[in-house]
Amino acid sequence: MHKVYLSLGSNLGDRKYEIKRAVELIGERIGAVERVSSLYETEPWGFSSDNMFVNAAVCVSTHLTPRALLEATQAIERDMGRTAKSVNGQYHDRTIDIDILLYDNIKVDEPDLNIPHPLMNERDFVMKPLKEILA
C-alpha cells in the first residue's frame, strides 16, 4: 500500500458538503482515508472571486499507481460537477478541486503529473491542513 496526501478545495455550492462528499468518494474509489484535516476557509488564490474556499487535506492508503490516482481524482472531480481543469495558471470557481500533494517519497515529473505538488509550499491553504495530518 502507498501513503498519499491530497488537497481538497471547494468554493461553489455547499462547500463543506462538497468536501465531505469528496472524502467519501476518495474512500470508496481510492483507498482507506486515514486522516482528514480540519476545514479551513480561505481567500481564492491566483484569481478573483466573490466566493471563499473551504480547504482540507486527507491522508489515504492506496494500491493505485500515481497515474491511476490522478485518473481517479479527476473522475471524482467530474462526477461532482467540475467541468474544466485549471490550465496554465488560469484558475476559476469550482465545486471541487483535488490535488495530489505527496505519494510515498517518490517524485514524478510528467507534463500533467508532478509529485510532490510543485506549488504546495507557496499555498498556506494547502500547507496548514497538510501539516495538521502529516505522520
Rank of each mutant, 00 (worst) to 15 (best):
residue 1 M to K: 13
residue 2 H to I: 07
residue 2 H to N: 15
residue 3 K to P: 01
residue 3 K to R: 14
residue 4 V to Q: 04
residue 5 Y to F: 08
residue 5 Y to I: 02
residue 7 S to P: 01
residue 9 G to F: 07
residue 10 S to Y: 00
residue 11 N to W: 00
residue 12 L to A: 08
residue 12 L to I: 09
residue 12 L to C: 05
residue 13 G to H: 03
residue 13 G to F: 07
residue 14 D to T: 06
residue 16 K to Y: 06
residue 19 I to A: 12
residue 20 K to Q: 15
residue 22 A to N: 07
residue 24 E to F: 06
residue 24 E to T: 13
residue 25 L to Y: 11
residue 25 L to M: 14
residue 26 I to L: 13
residue 27 G to W: 03
residue 28 E to D: 15
residue 29 R to W: 09
residue 31 G to L: 04
residue 31 G to N: 03
residue 32 A to W: 07
residue 33 V to N: 02
residue 33 V to T: 02
residue 33 V to C: 00
residue 35 R to D: 14
residue 35 R to C: 11
residue 36 V to Q: 06
residue 41 E to C: 01
residue 42 T to W: 03
residue 42 T to L: 02
residue 43 E to N: 10
residue 45 W to V: 15
residue 47 F to G: 09
residue 48 S to W: 09
residue 49 S to T: 05
residue 49 S to V: 09
residue 50 D to N: 10
residue 52 M to W: 11
residue 52 M to F: 09
residue 53 F to Y: 14
residue 53 F to S: 06
residue 54 V to K: 01
residue 54 V to Y: 05
residue 54 V to N: 04
residue 55 N to G: 09
residue 56 A to L: 03
residue 56 A to I: 02
residue 56 A to M: 02
residue 57 A to V: 01
residue 57 A to M: 05
residue 57 A to G: 02
residue 58 V to I: 15
residue 59 C to P: 01
residue 59 C to A: 15
residue 61 S to C: 08
residue 61 S to L: 12
residue 62 T to L: 01
residue 66 P to L: 10
residue 67 R to E: 15
residue 67 R to C: 07
residue 68 A to C: 07
residue 69 L to C: 11
residue 70 L to K: 04
residue 70 L to P: 03
residue 72 A to V: 14
residue 73 T to I: 15
residue 75 A to C: 06
residue 76 I to D: 12
residue 77 E to M: 08
residue 78 R to K: 15
residue 83 T to K: 14
residue 85 K to F: 12
residue 86 S to Q: 08
residue 87 V to T: 08
residue 88 N to L: 07
residue 88 N to S: 11
residue 89 G to V: 03
residue 90 Q to E: 13
residue 90 Q to F: 10
residue 91 Y to T: 06
residue 92 H to D: 14
residue 92 H to E: 10
residue 93 D to V: 05
residue 93 D to S: 01
residue 94 R to E: 07
residue 97 D to C: 03
residue 98 I to H: 07
residue 98 I to V: 13
residue 98 I to Q: 04
residue 100 I to A: 05
residue 100 I to P: 00
residue 102 L to S: 07
residue 103 Y to D: 12
residue 103 Y to L: 13
residue 104 D to E: 10
residue 105 N to T: 15
residue 106 I to R: 06
residue 106 I to N: 10
residue 107 K to D: 10
residue 108 V to K: 05
residue 109 D to G: 00
residue 110 E to I: 00
residue 110 E to F: 08
residue 110 E to G: 12
residue 111 P to M: 05
residue 111 P to K: 01
residue 111 P to F: 10
residue 113 L to Q: 03
residue 113 L to A: 09
residue 114 N to E: 13
residue 115 I to G: 11
residue 118 P to Q: 03
residue 119 L to S: 14
residue 120 M to I: 02
residue 121 N to V: 04
residue 121 N to M: 08
residue 122 E to W: 07
residue 123 R to A: 12
residue 124 D to S: 08
residue 127 M to N: 08
residue 132 E to D: 13
residue 135 A to Q: 11
